[in-house]
Simulated scan of single mutants.
Amino acid sequence: MRTVGIAATAHYLPERWMAAREIGLASGIPEAVVAEKFGVRGKHVAAPDEHVSDMAVSAGQRALDAAGLEPREVDAVVYYGSTWKDHAVWQVAPRVADRLGCTEAFALELDYVSCGTPVALRVARDMLLAEDELRRVLLVAACRESYLVDYDDPGSRFTYNFGDGAAAAVLERGLGRNEVLGSHMITDGSFSRHVKVPAGGSVEPASEQTVRERRHLLSVEDPADMKARLDPVSLPNFVRAAEVACKRSGISLADVSHLCGIHMKRSMHDELVDALGIPADRASYLDDTGHMSGVDPMLALDRAVAAGDVRDGDHVLALAAGTGYTWAATVVRWGEENA
């Protein structure tokens, strides 16, 4: 039976770190609330001249180095990070492939947001299993959405924890370790118009007025309605996505050894961990980075492995949700095949 495994993971974080105190000063929210309720001790912020492509290249190069691969050995470069990139109506994957020297690879762009990691793992696994000519895929994701946060808009408070960074992974068919297993996704498109950058698209083209009214920053169309409708379904959908992904992997939730999820407020994280039945110390929590679009679970996995929190034989659950609204999960069995 053919398998697909993770040959290496890596991440990159910008040098500047915006502490909870600074977030509090920008938003008018007490530092203690930012740190405790929002669950953010601080977050990394890209330099003004540091873009999604730059961070993705940094993480991608680190992943290639960790895997011991030359760029020409990569068959596909897949970008799955933030949809807010260096330019509008533009793909970052070809730029990353070119800068890394992946001259034998085609480029693929997955237009996902916060649910990116489990989705990308699923797509890359399926491509490698379906196409004999593919051997290795480089996944890269980056986020620079700290620059889309409007601290003067209380309706978009959930974005105040948005930070910047990148993550990457090399997937290889027949590797014999760190096998990518089953996945599941749930989408509720009734939430599709709630969270967006209002202006700049065909519905509301950019103009002097849209710039003046700050309509090129992230906003929530109706915060009260979104919360009222999302709260009852979010936790059940997270759990359902996880359950089905586990079932497709031949395990149950009880067999999950470590959770690598997206960053969320502390109370929701605790509820989710409890609902999944995973011990709190076996769930990554990115309180020093905040939320970075599709980057979070891959960065969490890279850190957990480096720290020794994930060991051979462990089943890791990559779990995420993204505005749209899609909940996604993928299971990885870490270690050698026979461990």
Rank of each mutant, 00 (worst) to 15 (best):
A107Q: 09
A107W: 07
A107M: 11
L108A: 07
L108M: 15
L108H: 06
E109R: 05
L110Y: 13
D111F: 10
D111G: 11
Y112S: 12
Y112M: 08
Y112Q: 10
V113D: 01
S114F: 06
S114P: 04
C115E: 13
C115K: 02
G116N: 03
G116Y: 00
G116V: 02
G116R: 01
G116W: 00
G116P: 00
G116L: 03
T117V: 04
T117Y: 00
P118H: 13
P118R: 08
V119N: 14
V119W: 07
V119T: 15
V119F: 11
V119H: 11
A120S: 15
A120I: 12
A120T: 08
A120Q: 07
L121K: 02
L121N: 03
L121M: 11
L121R: 03
R122A: 15
R122Q: 10
R122L: 08
V123A: 08
V123E: 09
V123N: 06
V123G: 04
V123T: 14
A124R: 11
A124Q: 09
R125K: 15
R125N: 06
D126E: 11
D126P: 01
D126L: 09
M127S: 01
M127L: 09
L128G: 04
L129A: 12
L129W: 12
L129M: 14
A130R: 06
E131Y: 01
E131A: 00
E131F: 03
E131I: 00
D132I: 09
D132L: 13
D132K: 13
E133A: 10
E133D: 13
E133C: 08
E133I: 07
E133K: 06
E133H: 12
L134N: 03
L134Y: 04
R135A: 12
R136A: 02
R136G: 01
R136F: 04
V137M: 09
V137H: 10
V137S: 10
V137Y: 11
V137F: 07
V137D: 02
V137Q: 05
V137R: 10
